[in-house]
Design a protein around this nucleic acid. Structure first.
Length: 227
DNA sequence: CCCTGATTCGC
DNA sequence: GCGAATCAGG
């Protein structure tokens, strides 16, 4: 497997979400946990709570002198033909961070405090969608005033692969990356958005005042795993 | 032992 | 640049 832009973005997103390297490796598939960590460091995004003691700048390490941490003659790294390791085991379930939903007493006035914890929605690839209040500089190119009803397109019997993606078809992932039936929505996009009208509704969700319960939280990657 | 991330270094 | 091997803490 190679690090395509798509996969790098998934790595970034998951890494910043706090998923472990193993989980990320599982989601991406075809890469080891070490590969994920290595790539993350190469990307510059590093240093999340590590079990290993972070070397404090002030703390000098007496045990390790810069003179010769590792002498030249140290070939324990012999190329031993190890047994073929399973390249890509089937992904395993992963604990999804539950959406924070502070209980509001019935009848209580849903007054949104400025610093109240936000309920965020998760988009495909694990992006954290911003609530309306977080939109500092509106990035959406041209939010349409009115959403047209999604037109069903029965002729999408064929799956839309990664190679089929372009600027005009919906990139919403269906299934999970690495799995055999993983594909993309492929519907015509909502103009100005990377997704079709239906999936724009999943990707961009307005934050409703407290107390109002909306049906289902949007699951990333198109839904919970079925195993 | 298991897990984690960090680092090294041959490729 | 990549990632297995290795290290080191929890």
């Amino acid at each position: 497997m190679s690090w395509t832009d798509e996969r790098i973005e998934q790595l970034r997103s998951m890494w910043e979400k706090g998923l472990t390297a193993s989980q990320i490796a599982d989601e991406l598939g075809g890469v080891s946990r070490n590969a994920v960590i290595g790539k993350a460091h190469r990307l510059g995004l590093k240093s999340r709570p590590s079990p290993v003691k972070a070397t404090d700048a002030k703390l000098a390490k007496p045990a390790k002198s810069p003179a010769a941490p590792k002498p030249a003659a140290a070939p324990p790294r012999a190329a031993v033909p190890a047994a073929p390791r399973p390249a890509a085991p089937p992904p395993k379930p992963e604990p999804r961070p539950a959406v924070a939903a502070p209980p509001t007493p019935d009848g209580a006035a849903p007054v949104p405090k400025p610093d109240a914890p936000r309920i965020v929605s998760i988009g495909p690839g694990g992006f954290i969608r911003q609530g309306p209040g977080d939109q500092q500089a509106p990035i959406p190119p041209a939010p349409p005033r009115r959403l047209v009803p999604a037109k069903p397109s029965p002729e999408i019997a064929d799956k839309t692969s990664l190679l089929d993606l372009n600027d005009r078809i919906c990139r919403w992932p269906m299934g999970h990356p690495g799995e055999p039936d993983f594909h993309f929505c492929g519907e015509a996009v909502n103009p100005g958005f990377p997704y079709c009208v239906e999936h724009c509704g999943r990707a961009y969700q307005a934050q409703l005042p407290r107390g109002t319960r909306r049906p289902p939280p949007p699951p990333p990657f198109g839904g919970p795993r079925v195993r």
